[in-house]
């Protein structure tokens, strides 16, 4: 409950973005329209509060696409529960960050 109370609108948007498939920092930025200086610290905070977890992708995938490794984020069970309750508070959230806007990763 404490984490829920602290969840800001920005954090909720980021959670929503991650939940619908924008799973790395740059894509979250694009989906939410928030600047990088807001998105990354917010994601660190969410990770600290165990609402999301991060994982480095396989080296082979990065090698195949000839780019540096990328860090992917996903919601934890606590994150999902919090997002569910946040969606009730912010009914337009799904429209602001919807899966249809998702770019192919």
């Amino acid at each position: 409950m404490a984490a829920e109370a602290k969840l800001s609108h920005t954090a909720t948007m980021i959670l929503q973005a991650i939940s619908v498939g924008y799973i790395y920092g740059l894509s979250v930025m694009q989906a939410t329209g928030l600047p990088s200086g807001t998105v990354y610290p917010a994601m660190r905070r969410l990770e600290r509060d165990s609402l999301i977890t991060s994982k480095w992708e396989n080296q082979s995938i990065a090698d195949a696409e000839q780019r540096p490794l990328r860090k992917y984020y996903k919601l934890t069970a606590a994150g999902k529960a919090i997002l569910e309750s946040a969606r009730k508070r912010y009914p337009l959230l799904a429209k602001i960050v919807s899966p249809s806007e998702m770019e192919r990763v």
């Binding site: 740059l26 990088s36 200086g37 807001t38 998105v39 990354y40 610290p41 660190r44 905070r45 600290r48």
Partner: peptide, 17 residues
């Protein structure tokens, strides 16, 4: 450059933390 400027904020947050 604009994107990387956000790194300063991120780094500062980590330092404070």
């Amino acid at each position: 450059t604009r994107f990387a400027a956000g790194a300063l904020q991120d780094a500062f947050w980590l330092r404070c933390e």
